[in-house]
Amino acid sequence: MLEFICRRILSLFPVILGLLVLTYALLYLAPSDPATILAGENASVEDIQAVRKEYGLDRPVYVQFGMYLKQVSVGNLGVSMYSNRPVLEDIAQRLPATIELALVSLVLMAIGGITLGTMGAVWHNSPIDHVTRMISVAGLAIATFWLAIMLQLVFAMVLGWFPVRGRIPPEMVPPVQITGLYLLDSILTLNFSAFRDAVRHITLPAITLAFGGLATVARFTRSSMLENLTKEYVSYQHATGVPFRRIIVPYVLRNSVITAVTQLGLLFGSLISGAVVVEMIFDWPGIGSYLVNAIFTSDYKVILAVTIVVGVIYALVNIIVDVIHAMIDPRLR
């Protein structure tokens, strides 16, 4: 198992290199010129030239890329061309917010999707199944931004159950940073009022982000469970007197969540990219809104850095998924 994990981690490096090359090439080919933007609106041609020289933008692209690689390899993601702050520092500050949002959504997706899928399969073709199928179709069909605005409208503005935006109330001091995840930090520091506020703030964005994935997980769990219910081991256990509910949980369920776990791993990537929209709408101070700002300002150091970080997280999550897979299914070990 350890060897398996090490091998997977080593395989990360070519992935990251490929990611860097691709992103760099895309940025280079994009029509916007960072030097022009940096120099400001009223800059003369000479000013722009000067900026270009200062940032090394006049050198051949492979030299620029080589310099960048050298920096990255020692953990230096560069300085934002827009705010002049070190990119790594900004990311370190904002990443926990996105991770927290993605993790809560992942949990909602896993629990909600697997529960709905299981119910749909156990009560196959009953009203319960129809409702779960309707939720799945809705989850795939409804656009994230529309759902976000509707949730804000109904639950935040009309009913007032949840705040419209933000991560904690503006007047409140964030809990002492341990992990950077407010939910975890507030519990670790026994700050329960902060915990309650953090839960209230994360609820709507997390539901928005989770809904589409939840539908996918529910569909995969349902069809996989329906298939597993026809398996010989189910009728064997039934024939030996094991009650039906025991056959479902854990025996059939464990076989059925194998596909759902794969889906969860793939969906985590879409959670991070989906966070871009959700973070903008809910004013969530995460890496998604940071990336959007960087794109608007052609801050290519930031764009590259965020791409690397998201790529690494995605690859790591998929290693974790493989490990969980091997834990669930002994045949893969």
Partner: peptide, 19 residues
Amino acid sequence: TALNPVFKVGVQMMEILRW
């Protein structure tokens, strides 16, 4: 096909004997 592939043999035997 009668044995569940993702559970230990002992666990499955225990379940049947339990009921």
